[in-house]
């Protein structure tokens, strides 16, 4: 085979880049929906906003089968151990998106019952602010996560 033919049929790339590309388009999500934002998330997951474009349309209701944990809503102190347990059950590589002001920072619920941000319980990769965020913002959050996955070192 001549060299031209090989260059036409073979793509050379780095391992990290290739795996990152694959992983960024197969985000199976676990929706940890608790509050107001979950209602907005119903809109996101229906046909109008179509998360399938990002390879993130497949909600798995088992943490063991999912790659992306979406914290959609307020995390209270009562809920915190549950969230922790769900996150621990997920297999690596796992990514966490905190959707909404409450999940990001506790929002305006600064009181005895609410954890001041989901990142005080588990590490968070992408923060989507808003109370609740518009569907476009959640899509933007998913795209930001894809970007992050593509540019990070991939462990096998």
């Amino acid at each position: 085979m001549s060299e031209d033919k090989i260059l036409d049929n073979v793509i050379t790339t780095r391992m990290d880049k290739f795996i990152g590309w694959a992983r960024s388009y197969s985000l199976w999500q676990y929706v940890f929906g608790t509050a107001c934002c979950a209602m907005e998330f119903m809109s996101v997951s229906s046909s109008h906003y179509d998360t399938d474009r990002f390879g993130a349309a497949m909600p798995r209701y088992s943490p063991r089968q999912s790659d992306m944990l979406m914290i959609v809503g307020t995390i209270t102190h009562k809920q915190a151990p549950v969230l922790r347990r769900v996150w621990e059950q997920m297999a690596e590589p796992k990514y966490v998106v905190a959707v909404g002001a409450c999940a990001v920072s506790g929002g305006f619920y600064r009181n005895y019952a609410v954890v001041q941000g989901a990142d005080r319980v588990i590490p968070v990769d992408v923060y989507v602010p808003g109370c609740p965020p518009r569907p476009e913002m959640i899509l933007d959050g998913i795209m930001a996560l894809q970007e992050k996955i593509r540019n990070s070192k991939q462990y096998l």
Partner: peptide, 11 residues
Amino acid sequence: PGFLHRGMEKT
């Protein structure tokens, strides 16, 4: 219930 008790009344 109570997993979404956000202390609204106290706040």
